[in-house]
């Protein structure tokens, strides 16, 4: 039974062993490549979207509690907001105090601390 199948297969292979012209070969390879490329773009788009989302998350993530501890006493309270407000009024603009990451150290950063410390969340 197995021998008969082998023979059939050999015959079929012999029949299909017609030489394929190289231009047809090239077209088949080209079409396969295009199909593969079409399949790849959704993956590439998803990857780009994830990268953009990650970049946005890191750019606009809320300042960690450590950053809000302006006076370095190990806790975040109104004295940190007060210290930062005085620094802003004095024109001190250390980049670490740009808590809202808008490129400026100003009253909005002080407000950010105040909002966070009275929040019940």
């Amino acid at each position: 039974m197995t021998d008969e199948r082998d023979v059939d297969l050999q015959r079929a292979l012999a029949l299909s062993a017609v030489p394929v012209p190289p231009e047809i070969d090239a077209r088949i390879l080209d079409a396969a490549g295009r199909r593969r490329a079409r399949r790849r773009w959704p993956l590439a788009a998803a990857g780009a979207l994830m990268a953009a989302a990650t970049a946005l998350f890191f750019a606009f993530r809320p300042a960690p509690a450590q950053a809000r501890d302006v006076n370095h006493d190990g806790r975040v309270d109104v004295l940190d907001a007060y210290r930062l407000a005085r620094a802003v009024e004095a024109g001190e603009t250390a980049p670490r105090w740009d808590l809202n990451r808008d490129g400026r150290v100003d009253r909005a950063d002080v407000d950010g601390i105040m909002t966070a410390l009275v929040s019940l969340q």
Binding site: A81, Y82, A85, L117, V118, S119, L120
Partner: peptide, 16 residues
């Protein structure tokens, strides 16, 4: 204060 504190029984107040 947090406006969400209104209508609740807990509030944090701060001022400077």
């Amino acid at each position: 204060h947090d406006p969400a504190a209104l209508q609740s029984g807990r509030i944090i107040l701060a001022a400077f």
